[in-house]
Design a binder for these strands. Structure first.
Lengths: 212, 212
DNA sequence: CTGAACTTTCAGAAATTTCTGAAATCCAAG
DNA sequence: CTTGGATTTCAGAAATTTCTGAAAGTTCAG
């Protein structure tokens, strides 16, 4: 892997980015290199290209494997292990989202639930628990959504994203057509009622409501 | 701020979480404390409660202010500055998303664009640029979407999230009703055609297509 | 002005994280 | 088995990040 100026710049930036997101520089650079490489690379070639020690690369690859972000494969006539990233970039995003959920979000939800089960010992506790409940519900909602959307195929996903905020128009349309409700029991606006708690009583346009 | 067991557990967990997301433990803990506090807190009280030096808290608050995540206010009869988080948790999410975009995503897009302008000097460059373009387009699509969705009011946002993957049903409905196209020129399926590039030619159900 | 109350800055200490080379381990071909 | 290339492990070194106390800066009531 010759490391042209273009590739080098990308690798360096990606490594830097990684460190802002809780991923160490080395791991970020390794991933970036694999991402733009035209073929699977063996560890020693990565080490040489990026100027890291062989053992450091081994650690990095182990980390990436534990995130299921790289795939290991053997090439015929070469005993070394070669590493590559998926071709489909959406697959990469899906994997990343899944792993972050599994490793960080789920344990957080568990902690929040545990703390919400605890009997409050003071007024401060009672208020704190109300805040924790808000956070719990928000995270759970976002995660359910992302799990769900993640299952869409690429085409639907892209179409949905391209639609952006105009999706509300569809929501309104749906709300105006009771027949299109959630199928089973023909309630006319099934989500809205349940949504109110989290949305807050005063759900005005993009309100900057702060305490004060 | 007495720091009950419940609040302490939350603060500690949040600090830990922070360090997985590129935020330092101290800053995470400070934010967590402010988040569950029933009133704005002055810096020295935060320092005492969490057991940090006053100067460390000062740094942390400065950081949080630069992210626009805390609000400074003066209470009558007290010269000290008091800090608090917004009441509306969705507002917190919006701010966080905005700042991350501004600080990390936008510069990344700029780097990617710059590298895409560069004339390729080899076949490796050409392939790398193809990959960079994919990443650029994906990030841009996600960011446009999030900017857009961020403008929705809380109620619409929650409704949208609750809908989850069932939103495809709406998409299909829309695609079947040409009249509902993007308003101006009545093209029947305006997004789909443009979406194809990023979605990949073979947009099958949740395909695990990897190289190999 | 002055000085008390509060806040920020910053150089170095402390803690944490990352990185390395050497040694141990693994594993397939012979 | 044994051999040798390939990989992993791990203890300590190096680098980075975080944290602190002391000093400087700011603000405002009197």
């Amino acid at each position: 892997m010759p490391l042209t100026p273009i590739i080098e710049a990308f690798v360096l930036h990606f490594g830097e980015m990684g460190s802002h997101w809780g991923i160490n520089r080395t791991v970020g650079q390794i991933y970036a290199l694999l991402y733009v490489s035209d073929r699977p690379l063996p560890a020693d070639e990565i080490a040489e290209t990026l100027g890291f020690s062989r053992s450091n690369v081994s650690m990095g690859l182990k980390e990436l494997q534990s995130w299921r972000l790289v795939r290991l494969q053997h090439l015929p006539g070469d005993r070394r292990e070669h590493f590559s990233t998926p071709d489909d970039i959406w697959q990469i995003v899906r994997t990343l989202a899944e792993e972050r959920r599994r490793r960080e979000i789920d344990p957080t939800l568990t902690v929040l639930r545990d703390l919400l089960m605890e009997p409050p010992r003071s007024e401060a506790d009672r208020l704190a628990q109300r805040r924790l409940a808000e956070m719990h519900d928000l995270i759970e909602l976002l995660m359910r959504w992302s799990e769900d959307v993640q299952k869409l195929d690429n085409k639907d996903l892209v179409q949905l994203l391209r639609l952006g905020g105009r999706v509300v128009a569809l929501l309104e349309l749906k709300n105006r057509l009771p027949l299109l409700g959630r199928g089973k029991a023909g309630r006319s606006r099934p989500e809205t009622t349940e949504a109110d708690a989290l949305a807050g009583a005063d759900a005005n346009d993009n309100n900057d409501t702060d305490r004060e």
